[in-house]
Design a protein around this nucleic acid. Structure first.
Length: 423
RNA sequence: GGAGAAGUGGCAGAGUGGUCGAACGCGGCGGUCUUGAAAACCGUUGUACUGUAAGGUACCGGGGGUUCGAAUCCCUCCUUCUCCGCCA
């Protein structure tokens, strides 16, 4: 959620910058500014009446004490009339505030200057490509065939137990999952990220806090009986730790990492995008989150990218780093890098991580702030990234490292799997 | 799930209808003293909105109500604690 002060003070600039995100609803911005003016007028009117009533109430008290009942009763009439007016103004104020909030929820974050112009994924900027794309042996197959061949992941069994998109990991497939989770957590911890194990269901307030509500209502599983949501990413519970918190400047940056299962309804996905491990309803992910000082958040953002690259290098996977264009970025992000690995048998790039700086957009909604040197309260910057999402890593790992004699486990992972080959 | 008790500032803890944004203490910050530190002493110390400012308004778990006036009374929800039941 953008700050009203930003919209009010830099209206034209904001409109121009939002064009890069294909946001064309200028009217909404003007409307919200007008509503804000109305809000202040109304609030002022109400506060004058409230102040008057506060004074009158004191006088009534004094008169009663003095035994001057008639005069007290006369004052009471004014008070009661004021109360009625104040109530009406209060209702009007609440209505205006609701309208303001509803509009603010529809305005996306301002993209950073570094964000490339563009509308589709084709317009994303390839920052760099690294790692050698392997030449597979004749007869190499996509990961879904490998899963079946080595009995690693059973998709049909998942359908029986739950439904499509809920695979069952078996044997070395299950062990590989556990190995990757431990590997990612250990690496993150070594980089100074404090490990968190959060709840995987969150309440409504948390879902609003990170902006999953109301924007992505239909994308989350919802448990109506207790009004809880299954998290689509650890970002939600971890970032909400800092909801309504005022931090000390010296505490920044806060670095957290968490492994959680993630749940996504993925309504509207179809075809080759959902084949095998490419898109699931339940998957495992290790997330990294930073709560940062605004002055160095972009530096930290780069460090996060470098860190995720180090993971991909250790897993010996070819990857590329994309800087997302305005049209492909998420609603809440100011700058996003996507990491894609090349899945050699499918011969396509798969997104395995998305690393974003939200600047104050999320912090404003979360009310996560810090107190600066002068004692003033300021919004923090929030950042997060996957490090990493498992399914597509597993897909590319199986495909890229397949040999005629089995699937080779990258050296860095062997101490976690306990085996060097899947065969 | 049943019965009872309680939720006040960073913490601890007073306050049961008006003068309470809230005592006292601890902690934090600033200062005096000291070669330095500790101790002691003095001062200061919530958030938001609004206003150029002075100031005003709101907030004592959340929401609603009674009253001229609510931290204080009533309703409701949430949370915590104690006991019982159930249970990985």
């Amino acid at each position: 959620m953008l700050q009203l002060s930003t919209l009010r003070e830099n209206t034209q600039q904001v409109i121009e910058k939002l064009a890069k995100k294909n946001f064309k609803n200028e009217a909404a911005i003007h409307e919200v500014i007008a509503l804000d003016t109305a809000r202040r007028t109304t609030q002022n009117e109400q506060e004058i009446i409230l102040a008057q009533n506060n004074a009158l109430a004191k006088q009534v008290g004094d008169l009663m004490k003095a035994g001057n009942k008639d005069e007290a009763n006369a004052l009471k009439e004014t008070t009661l009339a004021n109360k009625e007016t104040s109530k009406q103004l209060g209702d009007k104020l609440a209505d205006i505030e609701l309208q303001i909030q509803n509009i603010l929820y529809t305005i996306p974050n301002i993209p950073a200057d570094a964000v490339p112009v563009g509308h589709t994924p084709e317009d994303n900027e390839i920052v760099r490509t690294a790692g050698a794309i392997p030449t597979l042996h004749a007869g190499a197959v996509p990961h879904w065939d490998l899963c079946k061949k080595y009995d690693l992941i059973d998709f049909e069994l998942g359908v029986k137990i739950t439904g499509a998109g809920f695979p069952v990991y078996k044997g070395k497939g299950a062990k590989l999952q556990r190995a990757l989770i431990n590997f990612f957590l250990d690496e993150a911890t070594a980089q100074g990220y404090a490990e968190i194990q959060p709840p995987i269901f969150v309440n409504e307030a948390s879902a609003y806090g990170t902006g999953n509500l109301p924007d992505k209502e239909g994308q989350m599983y919802h448990m109506q009986i207790d009004n809880l949501y299954c998290i689509p990413t650890a970002e939600v519970p971890v970032t909400n730790i800092y909801r309504d918190v005022i931090l000390k400047e010296s505490e920044l940056p806060i670095k957290n990492t968490a492994y959680t299962p993630c749940f996504r309804r993925e309504a509207g996905s179809y075809g080759k995008d959902v084949r095998g491990l490419n898109r699931l309803h339940q998957f495992d992910k290790v997330e990294i989150v930073q709560i940062a000082h605004p002055t160095n958040s972009y530096e930290l953002h780069q460090q996060m990218v470098t860190y995720v690259e180090s993971l991909l290098n250790k897993l010996e996977l070819p990857y590329r780093v994309l800087k997302l264009c305005g049209g492909d970025m998420s609603f809440t992000s100011a700058l996003t890098y996507d990491m894609e690995v090349f899945s050699a048998a499918q011969e396509r790039w798969l997104e395995v991580s998305s690393i974003s700086n939200f600047e104050t957009f999320q912090a404003n909604r979360l009310k996560c702030r810090y107190k600066d040197g002068e004692g003033k309260v300021q919004l923090v910057h929030t950042l997060n990234g996957s490090a990493l999402a498992l399914p597509r890593i597993v897909a590319s790992l199986l495909e890229n490292h397949q040999t005629e004699n089995g699937i080779r486990i990258p050296q860095a992972l062997v101490k976690y799997t306990g085996f060097e080959y899947i065969n």
